[in-house]
């Protein structure tokens, strides 16, 4: 079992996203996160998809994705050097002595406090998934109010690219 990050370009059309998500449920493929938005070319959407599976299942996943009519192109980012990032908005209880402590932790993780109330913060943080996991774990569990994560998006290092 290995974690794969698939980056794909697809037609920005109604139904394209459901074609991809329906494929994963119909064929029993695992999907950990899925992140999608239009690109600089408004006729195309870019999707980043994370899955953990065996090599033979991964071969089927890429073949089945390629078979979808709306999918223009795809690549396995995890096959080469790449950068992955995920953004998290986390709302934490911040009262009394914990107010300072949480602010300090956020700084260590290079998070930004973007909303403050009498007893809470909202912290914005970007990084790879492990870093975000680590931050969630250092906040005492009973202080975490809400966690919102975007899912992974990624890009290859160097000149390698996924474009038309």
């Amino acid at each position: 079992m290995k974690r794969h990050i698939i980056s794909l370009l697809m037609e920005n059309e109604a139904g394209a996203l459901s074609n991809v998500s329906a494929l994963f449920s119909a064929r029993g493929f695992n999907i950990e996160s899925l992140c999608v938005a239009p690109t600089d070319d408004p006729s195309l959407s870019r999707m980043t998809l994370v899955t953990t599976c065996s090599e033979s299942v991964f071969e089927q996943i890429t073949k089945q994705l390629n078979k979808l009519i709306d999918v223009v192109k795809l690549m396995d980012l995890s096959e080469g050097v790449h950068i992955e990032r995920e953004m998290m908005l986390i709302k934490v209880r911040a009262e009394k002595e914990m107010r300072e402590e949480i602010k300090r932790l956020a700084e260590i993780f290079r998070g930004k406090i973007i909303d403050v109330s009498d007893n809470s913060y909202v912290i914005e943080m970007t990084g790879d998934s492990d870093k975000l996991d680590a931050f969630v774990h250092v906040i005492p569990e009973d202080h975490v109010i809400e966690v919102v994560r975007t899912g992974v998006s990624g890009i290859a290092r160097g000149v390698k690219s996924l474009t038309l």
Binding site: A14, G15, S18, N19, A22, A26, I69
Partner: peptide
């Protein structure tokens, strides 16, 4: 219809 037929057809279109 496109939702129901998606998993059992090669492709579906909804004309807008």
């Amino acid at each position: 219809t496109t939702g129901i037929s998606r998993p059992c057809s090669k492709h579906t279109f909804l004309v807008k």
